[in-house]
Every structure is written in structure tokens, then in C-alpha cells.
């Protein structure tokens, strides 16, 4: 079998999607008061940093940014091969904040479930919103994103790859077919 690689979004496409998401976040939250961004390691963390930049370009405010590692909250400990655990880095209190959780690809929803459990162990946010670059469907849990870069119906055996450069800036999104 040969893998087929199709470009879904290029650099500019990603940038436009993130700009739109940043505007939607500001509209829904009526500005940046109490707003914080938390990216899911690693891709989500990189995208959250991009969103932080976009928000400051629009509003002139640098909103707090953190990253969360969900390994300790996963539900597949016994059957998983890769045991690497990353570090959670959130240096601000989450209580009474509007948290925008950021990830690159939304698939089964299990990662988001784990991330929400991890967030709630760190404090009690007023609410948690979900921003996603690519929603590829196939949800296994009742989870719905609030901000979507691109809806992309996929087959289960396809893969979505978000490519980042050395500086962690997103470069392109690819769909891989086996």
C-alpha cells in the first residue's frame, strides 16, 4: 500500500482560520477579560501560542497562555506502548476564568475528555470552550467544539497531519490515505 498525501490547508489558510477563530473568541467572550488559553501538548500548545499572538494583534492584550499534558488522564494505560509523560505548565489560577482549550485535530473526543478532567483538577473555571483547527469527525464521546478552523469529513483509516516548523509555527495540514 502506498500512502497518498493531500494538502488540506497551507500556511495562509491556517493563518486565516486562526484569525477568524480569534475574532469568534473575542465576540463570544466580549473581549479578553478573564480569558485564558490552554493548549493540549504538543500541537495544541503551538496553536494556542499562535492564537495568543492573533488576540494581541486584534485587542492589544496578551492573554495568559498555558499548556496541558493529558497522559496521566488517558483511559488506555494498559494497552498503550508509548509511556512518555509531558509536563503541564499553567502558571495562573484557573478559578473563575473562561478557558479556551486548544487542540490541532478533533477525532474521537477522548483527548478532550482527558484534558477537561486534567483542567478541573487544577481549579474551577467559569467555563471551558474548545477551539480546534481540524474537526475530522468520528466522535466516540458527546463532545462538540465551539470554534472550528475547518470541518473535514474523513474515513477512519485516514490520518490528519499538522506540520509545524522549527519555531513551532504551523505550516500546513495534510490528509494521509493508506
Amino acid at each position: 500500500m502506498t500512502a497518498e498525501k493531500v494538502e488540506i490547508l497551507d500556511n495562509d489558510g491556517i493563518s486565516r482560520a486562526l484569525t477568524r477563530i480569534a475574532h469568534e473568541i473575542l465576540e463570544r467572550n466580549k473581549g479578553t477579560e478573564n480569558l485564558v488559553l490552554v493548549g493540549i501538548r504538543t500541537g495544541g500548545g503551538y496553536l494556542a501560542a499562535q492564537l495568543q499572538k492573533k488576540l494581541s494583534e486584534i485587542e492589544g492584550v496578551v492573554v495568559p497562555l498555558g499548556t496541558i499534558d493529558i497522559t496521566m488522564y488517558r483511559d488506555d494505560l494498559g494497552t498503550r506502548n508509548d509511556l512518555e509523560v509531558g509536563q503541564t505548565d499553567i502558571r495562573f489560577p484557573l478559578g473563575e476564568r473562561n478557558v479556551v482549550l486548544v487542540d490541532d485535530v478533533l477525532f474521537t473526543g477522548r483527548t478532550i475528555r482527558a484534558a477537561m478532567d486534567a483542567l478541573i483538577d487544577l481549579g474551577r473555571p467559569s467555563n471551558i470552550q474548545l477551539a480546534i483547527l481540524i474537526d475530522r469527525g468520528h466522535r466516540e464521546l458527546p463532545i462538540r467544539p465551539d470554534y472550528i478552523g475547518r470541518n473535514l469529513p474523513t474515513a477512519r483509516n485516514e490520518l490528519i497531519e499538522v506540520e509545524f516548523d522549527q519555531q513551532h509555527a504551523p505550516q500546513a495540514v495534510y490528509l494521509l490515505r493508506q
Binding site: 496521566m72 509531558g86 478532567d117 483538577d121 487544577l122
Partner: peptide, 23 residues
Amino acid sequence: FILDTAESFKEINTRQIKKVPTL
């Protein structure tokens, strides 16, 4: 790898809620 993993677990011990559901 054990030492690096411990590095990630160390943060939990300084939280207010010192518990994760891993095991």
C-alpha cells in the same frame, strides 16, 4: 526515561489537589 518521567510527576506533588487518575 524513569528520571524524565519523574520530572513530570513532580509537579503533582505541589498542587492543591495532589491526585491524578492514572492508576
